[in-house]
Nucleic acid binder design. Structure first.
Length: 647
RNA sequence: GCCGGUGUAGCUCAGGUGGUUAGAGCGGCGGUCUCAUAAUCCGCAGGUCGUAGGUUCGAGUCCUACCGCCGGCACCA
């Protein structure tokens, strides 16, 4: 049997599983089930990404060792996926021995082929971000957090990513299907074609302890991508599954998969995966899900209140796979009632009831002529699945359900049943509808594995529905008389209000439960503060250090946007000097220029001048940095004169 | 600012290569059957197809500009 190897990303254990993780995993699971029903030996890998300084810090905060902490969260993911009954064949943790060995092997091969070099890199380093700040100079601060930078000289292992720019461009141009959807491919090509091409990539750190050791560099551990991406291979070490046939990812990690990963594999002389598909984000009221907004949705409450199939169906039917989509409880319940309860569930119920009432629970299979568009539905659904166009696949399947409902009304079997002369016709009608239901059940099984298994049994089959082959679906079943068991409801209707309330209750409980695992006290959610990313203090300084910084009160005299830059405002600030100073500040996303004129601000007056977009900025505006990067200007409640120094 | 995408009925979206009265699902309203999970089925929704131009005998469908939104890049001291 031909293999088909699918991966989800490995999930960072800094957070408990939420619906975003679940979305990717559902899609992967559906595709795997689809491929199995196409006759492939399909396999699915998922796992957890457990290294790095953020994990070290979160563990410390939770009062646990990194190992204990990651054990707990990894177990949480595993449990959640088990509850959802995903067909996961390999669950790989980046802290496992098999993984470390594979990462080291990747490194050794890249190095043997001349793609690794060591360089002592001196630059300004942001402790908070765990990263060097490009092109920073003395006196600069971390652009995200405003924290001071440290001048750090670090020995880093570098990967010669720059050597692959042209090869990557050629590869993506010649293989348009490698990265889908198209729009993501365009972005990657645009990125690759930037002036100067790709820069080499630092792949090790000496400042982190919680990671995989670099083989010949005792002080180094691997940094992020060399470690994380390799999971796809390490998970299936000792099998013939690599190369992967499909990497299912979210759009935020496209670059790493479409640029770094092929380059690593080329350098190591290993085969590339066949395809990458990047789906979109789930939005809430058109906002991104985030801790600070407090709008994280967990999968487990939904499963408990509505069942896993309801979530699977909703996500894949409502949202075009690849695009962003909105998530809402009420929309999910509406979908459930309209399509699952009134649609599939009711069709099964009415069809099977009639077979019981009119024919004593036996149905003659093999309909002969297709009274219903069965064959078109099969090909449309398969085409949709194959292209990962799940919403289209489901739409076509539901088209057949709708056609069957209509057919029933037209044929009115309840009238035929009263007319002894119409017995054959009644048999034919029941048989046609029964067969359509059989086809629908098989086609929908990848998305609704649990429900379709139940309907399959109600249809009188004893073999599992997932062992049906889609390729054989169109063949009419052998002519026989099949008896069916008593009818049971599969999708009970849900009351909107009751269900929403239940979901909210369960969600609260789940949030509290997860908070404890993450080592947080079960406090009230505080949307404005993201306690997970508390910023550590910068290194201690003396008063002498501080007085070097000359902070002054100034008044904005003039403000306008800098042409060609989204974030920059060109300000003229009076700090008591003969001429107002020109200051270029990255606050344009947070402040309209007009609102700033006349406002008192605090500036760093003795900062070395810096040219930005052609303007020389002489000083820096002091502002609080918030999550999401929006600055809030410092100010005073009382009157302060222009030019006053802050001490 | 550059690049890509997008803007169609209350909501979610279809509308290859331009061609008669612009479609579907959901919601809403009215009606119907009774096998069924107050389900099904039928009818109704009169929407400047973002705006303004242009090409054409004819444009939602091609071109240009502009506006809104989304994303990528640049940018953030």
């Amino acid at each position: 049997m031909e293999k088909f190897y699918i991966t989800t990303p490995i999930y960072y254990v800094n957070a408990a599983p939420h619906i975003g993780h679940t979305y990717t995993t559902i899609a992967s699971d559906v595709y795997k089930r689809y491929k199995r029903m196409q006759g492939f030996d399909a396999r699915l890998t998922t796992g957890t990404d457990e290294h790095g300084q953020k994990i070290e810090r979160s563990a410390k905060k939770a009062g646990k060792s990194p190992q204990d902490f990651t054990d707990a969260i990894a177990a949480e993911f595993k449990q959640t996926w088990d509850n959802f009954q995903f067909g996961i064949d390999f669950f790989q943790r980046t802290t496992s021995q098999s993984h470390a060995e594979k990462v080291q092997e990747l490194y050794n091969r890249c190095k043997a082929n001349g793609y690794i070099y060591k360089s002592s890199y001196t630059g300004y380093y942001s402790v908070v971000q765990e990263a060097f700040v490009q092109d920073a100079k003395e006196g600069d601060v971390d652009p995200e957090t405003g924290q001071p930078l440290e001048l750090v000289t670090e020995e880093n292992c570098f990967f010669k990513l720059s050597a692959f720019t042209d090869k990557l461009i050629a590869f993506h141009e010649e293989n348009p299907d490698f990265l889908q959807p198209e729009t993501r491919r365009n972005e990657v090509l645009a990125f690759l074609k930037q002036e100067g091409g790709l820069k080499d990539l630092s792949i090790s750190r000496t400042t982190i302890k919680w990671g995989i050791p670099v083989p010949d560099e005792p002080d180094h551990v691997f940094y992020v991508w060399f470690d994380a991406l390799t999971t796809y291979m390490s998970a299936v070490s000792g099998t013939e599954l690599w190369p992967a046939d499909l990497h299912m990812i979210g759009k935020e990690i496209v670059r790493f998969h479409a640029i770094y990963w092929p380059a690593f594999l080329w350098a190591a002389d290993w085969p590339l995966p066949k395809k990458i598909f990047a789906h979109g984000w789930l939005l809430f009221d058109n906002n991104k899900m985030s801790k600070s907004r407090g709008n994280i949705v967990r999968p487990e409450p939904i499963r408990q209140a509505m069942g896993a199939d309801a979530l699977r169906y909703y996500l894949l039917r409502e949202i075009v796979f690849g695009s962003d989509g909105n998530f809402a409880y009420d929309a999910m319940i509406t979908r459930y009632n309209a399509d699952l309860a009134n649609g599939l569930g009711n069709l099964a119920s009415r069809t099977l009831s009639m077979i019981h009432q009119y024919r004593g629970g036996t149905v003659k299979t093999a309909s002969g002529a297709q009274a219903l568009p069965v064959s078109n539905t099969i090909s449309a659904a398969i085409e949709g699945y194959e292209k990962l166009d799940f919403s289209k696949a489901l739409e076509s399947i539901w088209g057949l359900i709708s056609a069957a409902d209509k057919y029933i009304v037209e044929q009115a079997p309840w009238k035929l049943a009263k007319d002894p002369a119409a017995a054959d016709q009644l048999d034919a009608v029941l048989s046609n509808v029964y067969d359509a239901l059989r086809v629908v059940t098989v086609l929908a099984a990848p998305v609704l594995p649990d429900s379709c298994a139940r309907i399959w049994k109600l249809l009188g089959f004893t073999t599992p529905v997932e062992s049906e082959l889609l390729g054989a679906l169109e063949d009419a079943p052998a002519a026989e008389t099949r008896s069916i068991p008593p009818v049971e409801p599969v999708f009970p209707r849900l009351d909107m209000k009751v269900t929403v309330d239940k979901l909210n209750d369960l969600e609260q409980q789940e949030a509290a439960r997860q908070a404890i695992i993450l080592g947080k006290t079960a406090e009230e959610p505080k949307p404005a503060v993201d306690e997970g990313t508390a910023i550590p203090l910068a290194p201690e300084i003396t008063i002498d250090d501080f007085v070097k910084v000359d902070l002054r009160v100034g008044e904005v005299k003039f403000a306008e946007r800098v042409k060609g830059a989204d974030k920059l405002l060109h300000l003229k600030v009076d700090i008591g000097e003969p001429e107002p100073r020109t200051i270029v500040a990255g606050i344009a996303l947070a402040y309209e220029p007009e609102t700033l004129v006349g406002r008192k601000v605090v500036i760093v007056a003795n900062l070395a001048p810096r040219k930005l977009r052609g303007l020389e900025s002489r000083g820096m505006i002091v502002a609080a940095s918030l999550d999401g990067g929006k600055p809030v200007l410092a100010g005073f409640l009382e009157h302060v004169p222009i030019g006053a120094r802050l001490k």
